[in-house]
């Protein structure tokens, strides 16, 4: 059986052939095509014979004639005009935010000593995502970065010419093009992740206590910006957690895909503490989650989420953790949807 869209195209084509034929507009070629179509199947001939019945044509013409097309067109263009205006305003808003972020990170990068060389005229490319969205970018050296929601990532404009430095706040998955001469480094706070060519995930949201680095394949080296004695080489399947406040590192074995699956649009929770679940869901769906009862934080959650709606996820949490939830919708785009959890 043919896929449905091929069938639809076929129906449209046959319908228009019949219409042209019945109005005597068909070309010789179209006439031949119609003949082929009719000979293809006895049902086609039946359909054709019903279609050309005078009464049926008259019925259709009367049905087609009931709507006021001019009025409908007027309504349509009015709505389009309103939409255009809204889109224009939205674009303008996005642009303003974007420029603001560029300026802001530029200053931050300049005053931060984490960079090895910072001539005053160096400029940065910044990519940032809001909560509820993520994106994929390709760096000048053809490395690919998946940027998760609520993340800012910046690199200097001559990236890959002299060095490969990236600053990150938030979460990103890197697929780094191998270049032994020029290692790629990702800096978040004091932690530097140095890499030759590998696939790894870095999660460093400012609100998190830990910066975590999960390695999928290859090898990366973790360094401290101000402490030369600090250093650890991570192996595939390992997750390193760097405590920002205390400056120490803990490493354990994990199923790395649980941490990197978000780039494929999949969220995996495996015995995940509710605090982590809440933070991830807040970013993923761009919502505010309020916890009414501290006991909720003691729960763990297990689920694999692929393209599920927000309501479905909370239903899942409700059934598997015995937690009640209430979604408070928002009618303003700048106010996030609120979800209240209690048990």
């Amino acid at each position: 059986m043919k896929p449905e869209h091929t069938n639809i195209h076929e129906s449209i084509r046959a319908g228009s052939l019949i219409g042209k034929y019945l109005t005597g507009k068909e070309s010789a070629k179209e006439k031949a095509q119609l003949k082929d179509w009719l000979n293809e199947d006895a049902r086609h001939q039946q359909l054709f014979n019903t279609l050309k019945k005078n009464g049926n044509i008259a019925d259709a013409m009367e049905e087609f004639g009931v709507h006021d097309k001019e009025q409908a067109w007027k309504r349509y263009t009015e709505r389009l005009a309103a939409l255009s205006l809204r889109k224009m305003l939205f674009r303008w808003k996005v642009a303003a935010v974007f420029f603001f972020l560029v300026a802001c990170t530029g200053i931050l990068a300049y005053i931060n000593s984490g960079w090895n060389s910072l001539p005053g005229n160096e400029s940065y490319t910044t990519v940032s995502t809001n909560n509820g969205q993520n994106s994929r970018i390709i760096l000048p050296d053809s490395s690919v970065v998946w940027v998760n929601s609520g993340t800012t990532l910046s690199y200097n404009t001559n990236f890959a010419a002299k060095n490969r430095h990236i600053r990150l706040s938030g979460q990103a998955f890197f697929k780094v093009a191998r270049n032994e001469e020029m290692p790629l480094t990702v800096t978040c706070n004091d932690l530097q992740v140095k890499v030759l060519g590998t696939e790894f995930d870095v999660s460093a949201y400012p609100e998190d206590q830990n910066i975590s680095v999960v390695l999928e394949s290859g090898s990366v080296k973790l360094l401290h910006a101000n402490d030369k004695s600090f250093g650890y080489t991570l192996s595939p399947g390992e997750k390193a957690e760097f405590n920002v406040a205390r400056g120490n590192l803990s490493v354990n074995k994990v199923n790395s895909y649980n941490y990197t699956s978000w780039k494929d649009g999949i969220l995996i929770f495996e015995d995940a503490p509710m605090r982590d679940v809440i933070e991830k869901l807040e970013r993923w769906y761009d919502i505010n989650i309020e916890v009414k009862n501290e006991n909720v934080y003691k729960l763990v959650f297990n689920a694999t989420i692929v393209n599920e709606s927000m309501g479905d996820i909370f239903d899942l949490i409700k059934f598997s953790c015995a937690v009640n939830y209430k979604i408070i919708p928002s009618d303003k785009p700048e106010v996030p949807v609120q979800v209240i959890l209690s048990n």
Partner: peptide, 29 residues
């Protein structure tokens, strides 16, 4: 699919009939 075919065929006819003057259309119907 049959319905799509019908609408396509009748749409051709409708748009063609619409080119006739008002009285011509009434006579044809």
């Amino acid at each position: 699919l049959e319905e799509v075919l019908r609408k396509e065929a009748y749409s051709e006819i409708y748009n063609e009939i619409n080119k006739l003057p008002e009285m011509g259309k009434n006579v044809l119907l």
